[in-house]
């Protein structure tokens, strides 16, 4: 019966919700994150990537518009980790662009790319979507 089929489809939606939201084994899982990190799935994923690959985030600019405050934000890592205190910063938890950049970096790090290649990819993907921070180009 089609009605039962519809119900199965809806249950499949629930199953879909169960899949894909799992923990990525390659990322830091047991970091003692502050509460704001848990606000959304992307937020948790982004901060875990920031905790796992801080050097990669430091090598790329942030395109969210945070360049308006150059003392505080000089690269993508600064949106996740306060450059003065070293604590996790709340900024990225509410910023879709910061999180999207971090998630892209997390995917590309699995491809074993160099920091320079990551930087080139970020610049190519995000150019025109906002003004970047003034981040020095990585040497390697």
């Amino acid at each position: 019966m089609l009605g039962a089929g519809a119900l199965v489809l809806l249950m499949a939606t629930m199953a879909l919700a169960g899949c894909g939201g799992g923990s990525d084994e390659t990322l830091a899982a047991d970091v003692d994150f502050p509460q704001f990190v848990y606000r959304s799935e992307d937020s948790l994923k982004g901060y875990r990537i920031a905790a796992t690959y801080p050097e990669a985030l430091e090598a790329v600019p942030c395109y969210c518009g945070c360049e308006q405050n150059p003392e505080k934000y000089q690269n993508l890592k600064d949106c996740f980790i306060d450059r003065k205190t070293g604590d996790f910063d709340e900024h990225a938890a509410g910023c879709a662009i910061c999180l999207e950049e971090a998630i892209d970096i997390g995917e590309w790090m699995k491809e074993d790319l160099s920091l320079r290649e990551i930087r080139d990819r970020i610049d190519e993907a995000y150019e025109g979507r906002g003004k970047p921070t003034d981040t020095p180009m990585p040497s390697e």
């Binding site: 704001f36 969210c64 518009g65 509410g94 910023c95 662009i97 906002g130």
Partner: peptide
């Protein structure tokens, strides 16, 4: 041009 997120969500 993009925009910065609010300081507090």
């Amino acid at each position: 041009d993009g925009h910065m997120p609010p300081d507090n969500v």
